[in-house]
Nucleic acid binder design. Structure first.
Lengths: 350, 350
DNA sequence: GGTTACCTTTGGATCGTTCCAATTCCACCT
DNA sequence: AGGTGGAATTGGAACGATCCAAAGGTAACC
């Protein structure tokens, strides 16, 4: 062999036991801090563990104990800062509970999601936190991981017929309330013609946000023609391009509730190109409170979902489920908070 | 118990073997696609595997084979989009190679880093990709994971004395070349008085970028007084505040190479407040090519580091190292690419 | 019929840990 | 001397897979 570094086999309990003239079992007890072992023996063994640089093999322990010390986290889009923050929150809370995060990213592909779920399941996580890819099917998901696996869905539910036998927990955002809060805020400022801008009608989160918007508008006795509701792909550039369409009907909105921050920022860009100054000539609200929202000019009024806290919450929920696999399924809706900034101005005329 | 779902034990090789009247070994061969098993037997067993919903236990297999199918990824800041993209790239490439990602986030705390590394090491990853927390010490890192563990450092090296025995691989960005490219670009446009703006002198990436700037300036025979080099905390708001300082000396720069995109965007904001139009009256370049860079007005000339590609590259490197633990250590510098956009204009006078 | 060869299949040991029942040791009591 | 009890330790069988040497079955050949 072309090297002089000795290949050191991994140190195991047996090695330590042999060096200390005790049995494996005793060393194992020391590792787990059992009160049964004699003080002197413990000290002797602990010293030896340190000396030899022993690393605990949790996989072997888990095999024997039929336990798990990991939880899988499968996200539809890690590149999205919202989910990245969520992941950070999950990992933070799981780490505190002595669990390790198995990461999987699906890139919104439901076939890739199947592969990833299958591969992660083989590593025997204690549970799975899944933010389903668009167009993924409930039956498929369950068949990939087995019906016994504790499962927490985040953000959206998979499509397809809901399997009768299954139960999963759900952590969703209070999209409807968010849409309502933003709309009520604009109404309180004096706006009367308010648009709902951006998002896909077939996305459940968009439907929910819009439904909150409609609720608030109706409650205030305001008009909501279809012309005031414009769909667009939720990216900044698309939103910028579609901005002009807002002013084509004869409703001349003075404000818009946007599907999310990306759309809102795009709209602000588009407004400038149309010669309007967001935050002065036209009020805009977003959804998500991404880092950019507070830094944009004008700063963006939006709904904060605190993704990191949601991550911690999700971790808590899956641990709960693992502790009691037969408790009734939970369906938690996380509150969202209106953050008022500069982009939501009163209408010019008033 | 308050439920009627039967508690199903997990299905193992033994269960399948018993149902099919064959031995464990045969079923194992089927699972691994061995050509040794008879076609009919294989079909029978595969049917049974499906019927019972068998899930492979990779941990048990890894224990027996003394292999690993996971790699740990420890990041100093998952919330940062740059690292989130990097993580997505790592996971993508590892997934293709049939590995699973063990995630750990340290939040820039070196003590938390120690805990996380220790905990991950117990799960027996085949290697570790680490973007060290600020102020972390090389000795400590190695003692947490053992000197045998394949280790790839990303983005920066830990401080402290470099342990003699150790070897790790390194994947860094070509900061110096990036600084040089941006500066040369501005020089080619006709600028003569160019500032270097933003960043901390004690950050290695800042030093490297600035050193590229100095190199290009000297090569062109241009003056680089200390007044042209302004430090500031690399956030947008700080950069905006410090903008005025650029014009206090008597060098009257017509362009600035910024430490990163955040600084560059802040500077553009500051310039406007000073009555200068970035991209017309003053040229600006950034570093990182974050999503906003192309959407800003004017769009930002910057250096693209393609974090997702870096992630794939890191995954490739650690797999390489695992395949040949005794190959000499690699020290790879990833290229950065100049993306010319609207913010880098020629000087007004020319 | 016996030898050879090949294709399949198999039992048992093994990976590094934990569990459990059993054992050893020793002091103390009657 | 024998019995009791508690503290400390231990051997061996698990956990669910893989490896390996060996064995069973069948067909072909001399």
């Amino acid at each position: 062999m072309p090297h002089n570094t000795p290949i050191r086999r991994k140190i195991t309990l047996n090695d330590i036991a042999a060096s200390c003239d005790v049995s494996r079992a005793t060393v194992s007890l020391v590792l787990r801090g059992s009160p049964l072992v004699n003080k002197n023996t413990r000290a002797r063994i602990e010293e030896e563990l340190r000396r030899q640089g022993y690393v605990y093999n949790r996989a072997a322990a888990n095999l024997r104990r039929r336990t798990s010390s990991s939880i899988a986290l499968v996200l539809n889009d890690l590149g999205n800062p919202f989910f990245a923050e969520f992941a950070a929150g999950v990992d933070e809370a799981l780490g505190k509970a002595e669990f390790v995060t198995l990461l999987g990213s699906t890139g919104e592909s439901s076939t890739r999601q199947q592969t990833v779920l299958g591969s992660l399941a083989e590593h025997g996580p204690g549970g799975i936190i899944l933010s389903p890819a668009e167009g993924s099917d409930a039956e498929e998901v369950l068949s990939a991981i087995g019906a016994q696996m504790p499962l927490l869905l985040f953000n959206r539910e998979p499509g397809g017929p809901r399997p009768a036998s299954s139960h999963w927990d759900l952590l969703a955002l209070d999209n409807q309330n968010g849409g309502r809060l933003a709309t009520e805020h604009l109404i309180a400022l004096g706006h009367r013609s308010i648009a709902f801008f951006g998002g896909h009608a077939d996305s459940s989160s968009c439907r929910q946000r819009r439904s909150g918007y409609l609720e608030a508008m109706r409650a205030a006795g305001l008009d909501v023609t279809p012309e005031l509701q414009l769909e667009c792909i939720p990216t900044r550039t698309e939103a910028a391009h579609r901005s002009a369409a807002l002013f084509e009907g004869d409703h001349r909105p003075t404000a818009a509730v946007c599907y999310n921050d990306a759309v809102a920022l795009g709209l602000m860009l588009g407004l400038r190109q149309l010669g309007r100054l967001p935050g002065r000539d036209f009020a805009v609200t977003g959804f998500d409170d991404i880092a950019e929202a507070s830094l944009a000019l004008p700063s963006l009024t939006t709904l904060s979902t605190d993704p990191r806290a949601r991550g911690r919450q999700a971790a808590g929920m899956i641990l709960q489920r693992m502790a009691d696999p037969f408790a009734p399924a939970t369906h938690t809706v996380a509150p969202v908070q209106l953050v008022v900034r500069a982009s939501s101005c009163p209408p010019l005329s008033s």
